[in-house]
Simulated scan of single mutants.
Amino acid sequence: MFKTRFTETFGVRHPIMQGGMQWVGRAEMAAAVANAGGLATLSALTQPTPQALADEIARCRELTDQPFGVNLTLLPTQKPIPYAEYRAAIIEGGIRVVETAGNNPGEHIAEFRQHGIKVIHKCTAVRHALKAEQLGVDAVSIDGFECAGHPGEDDIPGLVLLPAAANRLSVPIIASGGFADGRGLVAALALGADAINMGTRFLSTRECPIHPQVKAAIRAADERSTDVIMRSLRNSARVARNAISQEVLAIEARGSATYADIATLVSGLRGRTVYEQGDTDLGIWSAGMVQGLIDDEPTCEELLRGIVEQAQGLIRKRLEGLLSD
């Protein structure tokens, strides 16, 4: 067992968090991680309405008696999202931990804190993490350039970003991007983090509610099998390399591409179809470089136990053994 500021702050057994995971962070996924001793999150915007989120929170409670949270991603969208209603569903559902991501979470942090809810904010830069700390978050999740989804525009990998954040922050830090095993956990702790956050690694677990062919594709991929799209629009996203991501990059390479030029290709609904039907070329779907380290499909219990045991073994057998008098 590891005892860190993360485990103490959020009341979980292991310093391991399951990311928000759009279209994936459902009750069966979150409950499995929670039961295994990690901090699990439901994805609020995976649910089509605030009432659907309330129902999913209730469903998750039927599957676990352990703590779990909700990810609320704040998006710049053409169609307004009823964030106040989603927030109310989270509060009324008795959730004690929320992870925010995306746009400035100030108003949401203030409201959640009034109801005794702890807030984690996901950041891709130290300057953003410092702002989140000023707004009163209880922890920050720091995404390095290796991560799936949106790595920001600075291209700073975790090896530099994590200690840079640890040098300046006082709240607990969750390391995100590139983590899959005990080696990553030990490295993150050494760099100043208090826990690791994983998304891609959880895609290839027994309880993950996606098509088996997508899980198989992750296991077959290597660390080079991702693309960073939408860089020309300053909305970079790391996704699994497929026919659609290559088409998006070709459009961007022509110059002067607008979002309208690629909107139908990067539609989130197409990404959901990938997870449901198993055809990995149907749309854009998130995957990190870490897929090159994934070659099995354990249960969440087996995964978390294996990570912790491997990390303990590395510290006791390898790292201590390197010390000399």
Rank of each mutant, 00 (worst) to 15 (best):
Lys3Gln: 10
Thr7Met: 11
Glu8Trp: 12
Thr9Cys: 13
Arg13Tyr: 10
His14Asn: 15
Pro15Asp: 11
Gly19Asn: 03
Gly19Met: 10
Gly20Lys: 09
Gln22Asn: 11
Ala27Trp: 09
Met29Phe: 13
Leu42Pro: 13
Ala44Thr: 12
Thr49His: 07
Pro50Thr: 06
Ala52Cys: 07
Leu53Pro: 10
Arg59Val: 04
Glu62His: 12
Phe68Tyr: 07
Gln78Lys: 09
Lys79Ile: 07
Lys79Asn: 05
Tyr83Phe: 11
Ile90Gly: 14
Ile91Asp: 12
Gly93Tyr: 03
Gly94Trp: 00
Gly94Ala: 01
Thr100His: 09
Asn103Glu: 03
Pro105Ile: 00
Glu111Gly: 13
Lys122Ser: 09
Arg127Met: 10
Arg127Ile: 09
Ala129Ile: 06
Ala132Gln: 09
Ala132Ile: 06
Glu133Asn: 04
Val140Phe: 05
Val140Gln: 07
Gly144Asn: 01
His150Asn: 15
Asp154Cys: 08
Ala164Lys: 04
Ala166Cys: 08
Arg168Ser: 15
Ser176Leu: 11
Gly177Val: 07
Phe179Ser: 02
Ala180Ser: 08
Ala190Thr: 08
Asp194Thr: 02
Ile196Thr: 08
Met198Asp: 00
Pro209Asp: 01
Lys215Ala: 02
Ala221Thr: 04
Val228Tyr: 11
Leu233Ser: 07
Val239His: 01
Ile244Arg: 15
Glu247Leu: 07
Leu249Tyr: 04
Ala260Trp: 05
Ala260Tyr: 03
Leu265Phe: 05
Ser267Tyr: 03
Gly271Val: 04
Arg272Val: 01
Leu282Ser: 06
Ser286Leu: 15
Leu293Asn: 15
Pro298Met: 15
Gly306Ser: 05
Gly313Val: 07
Leu322Phe: 00
Leu323Pro: 00
